[in-house]
Design a protein around this nucleic acid. Structure first.
Lengths: 95, 95
DNA sequence: ATAATTTGGTTTATATTATAAACTTATTTA
DNA sequence: TAAATAAGTTTATAATATAAACCAAATTAT
């Protein structure tokens, strides 16, 4: 009937992050922050969770002299997102 | 960019309840319990929240000698569900 | 030169939420 | 009449989301 929803993706901010990454493939911390409207603290925590789950990869580099945190979606992340969307349909389709 | 997700609907169990009610219009507690696989306690709590939000109406009757809790979606609930689905699209569509 | 502000975050604390366990009451069934 | 089942509710706990507080380095203003 209803397919379980991956709790890692069923979160407004994490879903927004993944949504950005699935189309842009990679994005910098400040860009994600701006696009999602999240606070830096919240964003940092949620990025850590996605990283811990293996849904994204995080590369810490520098952009000139300033630190730059680059996020990229992983194959597992991409798959999890697709599955999440599939699962969601079981709740949204009129049966 | 991303539309906010109504936190009352962005919950696996409450979304399942609303999903059932939007298509069947009304349903009994045990039926919802069976369809969602939720525990009675959890279901009771979430039904209360949907009721408090005005998204559903709850009628406590009897079916023979046994109590029967009947849930029905309200116009506000229906509207909120439709809006939630709209908002979700902003996360799911490839941009 | 140095004080204040901004950038780019992380860590920690709090408040909310989801969830199940424990409980209640009435009704069947053994 | 004792045990089990049905139909829930209340309460406790564990997880979660979120922002506030913090930190370090770089930039800008005085």
């Amino acid at each position: 009937m209803f397919q379980p929803l991956d709790p890692l993706l069923h979160s407004e901010l994490r879903l927004a992050i993944m949504s950005l990454l699935i189309s842009s493939d990679e994005a910098e911390f400040p860009y994600i922050k701006e696009q999602t409207g999240a606070t830096a603290g919240n964003l940092s925590v949620q990025i850590d969770k996605l990283l811990a789950a293996g849904y994204i990869e995080v590369e810490k580099t520098f952009k000139g002299k300033r630190p730059c945190t680059l996020c990229r979606i992983s194959p597992q992340g991409r798959q999890a997102f697709v599955q999440y969307v599939e699962a969601l349909k079981s709740y949204l389709e009129v049966k």
